[in-house]
Design a protein around this nucleic acid. Sequence first.
DNA 1: GTATATTCAGACTAAATAATCTGATTTACA
DNA 2: TGTAAATCAGATTATTTAGTCTGAATATAC
Lengths: 145, 145
Amino acid sequence: MSVLFSRQCEYALQAVLYLALKAGKEKITTQELTKRLKIPYHFLGKILQDLTRKGLLASEKGPRGGFSLAMPAEEITLFHIVDAIDGTEFTRSCVLGFPECSEKKPCSVHSTWGGLREDIYTRLVKKNIAQLARDMKKPEYQSKR
Amino acid sequence: MSVLFSRQCEYALQAVLYLALKAGKEKITTQELTKRLKIPYHFLGKILQDLTRKGLLASEKGPRGGFSLAMPAEEITLFHIVDAIDGTEFTRSCVLGFPECSEKKPCSVHSTWGGLREDIYTRLVKKNIAQLARDMKKPEYQSKR
DNA sequence: GTATATTCAGACTAAATAATCTGATTTACA
DNA sequence: TGTAAATCAGATTATTTAGTCTGAATATAC
Ligand code: SF4
Ligand code: SF4
């Protein structure tokens, strides 16, 4: 298997994206998210708690409670989410997982692979989730649900 | 943690690259590889067996035995190695692990992320391991060992 | 032929990640 | 004030991946 981010992180990305799409309206419950995104309920619960602790989401308990973005969607990028869940180690370590090397003396694959992590980073910060949510509403993204 | 390929696969890449570098000469033993590349001995053994079964490496038992490339280094790319260990699923599935989607109705992040898997694929097939081994010998890659 | 160095095979253990379960806490509202 | 709907916390289990161990099979060299 090959994978870019952990499963938790993928779930987090989807969840926050969903929240951004519904931003402004009512709070969103774990139940709604678990149904729409097909993510295991309790696992998702943990992830949302985590994102809340990290300050990305705001939560409210009790009936009519749920989760919402803790800040304007314009200020959140996918990078913030990845950072909160998987951390930012990938911006520093070798994409191929090769052992330590110095920039001065790169290994033979570095000319090809060295740029990938910057590339991934760029994609993560390129758009904020408000833009992504707007994209989601464009006709060409409508809609299989 | 974020990672592109499994640890096994990373080890396999390093090992085959090492073999390419030493190609033509004697067979290389697991022991030499485990020392040079700092990969757990028995784990590496499994991986080399795997690569042999998949037809990428040739093995010989007994004293003076060991492993060597099963074909000219010019015919092997990193993609072949990844294919043998992790499989090629990543060329088809979403890099963010999002659930099934149709190309016709991509999700909102697809414009940014859709290209990444082709990008990775390209990097994997761009150079064969003979070229990579030659790169390794260039002065600018010399040498911390 | 015997000792030795290797791959090979399979069972086993360890660690990391993913997922589940139980119950406590908070809050809205009838 | 009581009930229900939600988050929150922590323990537990399951699954996957990583790594280890033991011994058999095979080939070389003396
Ligand atoms: S030189 Fe580049 S590709 Fe090679 S090990 Fe270092 S970071 Fe990885
Ligand atoms: S549309 Fe693209 S980014 Fe979105 S889920 Fe499908 S493959 Fe992934």
